[in-house]
Simulated scan of single mutants.
Amino acid sequence: MVNCVVRDWQGQEVGQASLDLKVAKEETAAHIVHRALVRQMANARQGTASTKTRAEVSGGGRKPWRQKGTGRARAGSNRSPLWRGGGVIFGPKPRDYSVKMNRKERRLALRTAFQSRSEDLIVVEEFADKLAQPKTKELMSAIARWGVGADSKVLLIVSERNETVYLSARNVANLKLISATNLNVFDLLAADKIVTTTTALAKIQEVYGE
């Protein structure tokens, strides 16, 4: 179990919150999280890279010059891979990069990754009502009051999408906003600091706490 301090909009401590997730054993934790990360990154690949072989490149039907007597090397086609404009040897073709991983393993890896970031976890009260209108400056000021450095990559987790919060956060390069039900291993590991609301933390506990 992990206990976290809860902060309000002004950055003051107002209570405690706990997180208790079933995580992988210490000796296998790094392996299963790594597998989940590789799977996520591989599944994000489009796999549409494609090159043409010498059979697919247009042209090349006529022998460039006669076989013997010119003093030059033999050539049967000007679309040989050795020629400029020719085909490509062993080039990429469209393929499926997806990697399979069982659902229970994926959820275990996600819980393990989240709880492993507990030292960088900041829990705050719901703040959507504090933003009367979309205001990036006010949101960034609040994040600074919560103890996040100006250059830190921040993952902001909310219970559900709020339009005002979304519009306030979308234009910040090092801030990513996601909902509690859309957690993923890559975002959890890539962030320097993870900020979550109390309701989002409760939803994470409810959805992923097995």
Rank of each mutant, 00 (worst) to 15 (best):
H34T: 11
G59N: 05
E27H: 11
R74G: 00
V38P: 04
K25R: 15
I89S: 07
H31P: 00
R39I: 01
S50T: 14
G76N: 09
E26R: 13
T53G: 14
P81N: 10
R74C: 01
T53E: 13
G87D: 13
P81L: 06
I32E: 08
S58W: 01
A75C: 06
T53D: 14
R35C: 06
G86R: 10
P64F: 00
K68T: 11
W83F: 12
A44G: 15
G59A: 02
L37R: 15
G71I: 06
G91R: 08
A44I: 01
W83K: 14
G59Q: 05
M41F: 01
Q40D: 12
R62S: 08
T28E: 14
L37W: 09
A36R: 08
Q46K: 14
G61A: 04
T70V: 06
G87R: 14
G85N: 13
G91F: 01
P64R: 02
V88S: 05
T48N: 14
E26G: 15
R84T: 10
A44M: 13
A55M: 03
T53N: 13
K68V: 06
G76S: 11
G60K: 03
R84L: 07
E26K: 14
G87T: 10
R84V: 14
S50F: 01
I89D: 05
S50K: 15
A42I: 09
A24E: 12
K25F: 02
G69N: 09
G76H: 11
P81I: 13
N43V: 12
E56H: 00
T48D: 09
I32Q: 06
A29E: 13
W83I: 00
R66N: 03
G61T: 07
N43L: 07
V33H: 07
E26L: 04
G69H: 06
V57E: 03
V33T: 09
A36Y: 06
R66P: 00
W65A: 04
A36W: 04
R84K: 15
S50H: 12
G71E: 09
V57D: 03
G76P: 08
N43F: 03
G47H: 10
S80D: 09
K68N: 08
R45T: 08
G71V: 06
R62Y: 00
T51H: 05
G47E: 12
N78T: 10
R74V: 15
G61E: 08
F90M: 06
H34M: 12
G69K: 08
H31D: 10
M41Y: 04
G85L: 10
N43R: 09
A44T: 08
H34I: 00
Q40R: 13
Q46R: 15
G91H: 08
T70Q: 06
Q67I: 09
G59K: 00
S58L: 01
H34F: 09
V88D: 04
R54I: 01
G60L: 03
A42E: 11
A30V: 07
L37S: 05
S77V: 04
A44V: 01
S58P: 00
K63F: 00
G47A: 12
A44F: 04
A36F: 02
A44L: 10
V88Q: 12
R72Q: 15
R35K: 15
G69R: 07
G91W: 05
